[in-house]
């Protein structure tokens, strides 16, 4: 299943947030959204996931999600959004309970996603017992449990320290290599973008429009952190964004 963002504009009252955004999200690819603070990245992600309706334009779904897919468009949030009163297992079963899944099947799914995210030993733990990185792994496991057609990740790693971030990025890459998933990945962090993105969409400052689409041809599996080619791309992205970021920063101060 592919997604197509078609000439989407969005406004909150008097505030123009997105302007005429058109973006292709092809199956099996990771599209990264980068852009200065407040340019409308999260808003765009909410529009794509159907949590909000655009003021104008359309989000189009091309093709059907696979049969086993319980929740085609599935989020992973920056703040993890785990229910603190449920165990790791309970948090995952939460999203299965509303579907008519027999108990043993649910158990199988849970065991599978826990295994894929290396959480099998933490099945019974409560969120308060977990580190930030572990919490985000639980959130990813939960997202995987519904077998999504598209994963929508809103700065999933920015609440984590840089070492943990590096480790989780490796995990995401491993997950993708094992079974390619489609994803829209919002981030501030250009390093993440060049490690994970097949396509990187650079948004201008608010009202956000697509300033440039950068495609990276290097296969995900071959991208290493200190690859000079990647660093070049990262530098290029930064050059694109620098002016915008400075302007956006000033704008915020003016508000």
């Amino acid at each position: 299943m592919d997604l197509l963002v078609k000439q989407v504009s969005h406004r909150y009252g008097d505030l123009d947030v997105l302007q005429n955004v058109t973006l292709d999200i092809p199956k099996g690819k990771i599209v990264c959204l980068v852009g200065p603070s407040g340019c409308g990245k999260s808003t765009l992600l909410r529009l794509i996931g159907g949590l909000e309706q655009p003021s104008s334009g359309q989000i189009v779904q091309i093709g059907d999600p696979p049969d086993a897919c319980l929740n085609p468009l599935t989020y992973v949030f920056q703040d993890f959004a785990l229910l603190p009163w449920r165990s790791v297992e309970g948090n995952i079963s939460l999203v299965l309970e509303d579907h008519d899944i027999p108990g043993h099947e649910a158990q199988r799914i849970i065991a599978d996603v826990l295994e894929r995210t290396k959480l099998t030993d933490f099945r019974a733990a409560l969120p308060k017992q977990l580190s930030g990185g572990m919490k985000q792994r639980v959130a990813i496991a939960r997202a995987l449990a519904v077998n999504p057609a598209v994963l929508l990740l809103d700065e999933p790693l920015s609440a984590l320290d840089s070492q943990t971030r590096e480790l989780l990025m490796d995990d995401l890459l491993a997950l993708w290599s094992r079974q390619a998933f489609t994803a829209v990945y919002v981030t501030h962090n250009l390093h993440e973008a060049v490690r994970l993105g097949h396509v990187i969409a650079v948004l201008s400052r608010r009202p956000g429009e697509i300033k440039q689409l950068v495609e990276l041809d290097i296969p995900l599996g071959e991208r290493s952190p200190d690859d000079p080619a990647l660093q070049l791309h990262q530098q290029h992205l930064w050059d694109l964004m620098r002016e915008e970021a400075i302007a956006a920063d000033k704008e915020l101060v003016d508000v």
């Binding site: 319980l70 929740n71 468009l73 989020y75 949030f77 703040d79 229910l83 939460l94 509303d98």
Partner: peptide, 26 residues
């Protein structure tokens, strides 16, 4: 926490489930 409710909605939980499993315990 509104973000938890939003999470429930994003996973397509029913209204009942959101009230019983998220709002009430929260």
């Amino acid at each position: 926490d509104r973000s938890l409710i939003r999470m429930g909605q994003s996973f397509g939980l029913s209204w009942r489930s959101i009230v019983w499993k998220i709002v009430l315990p929260g």
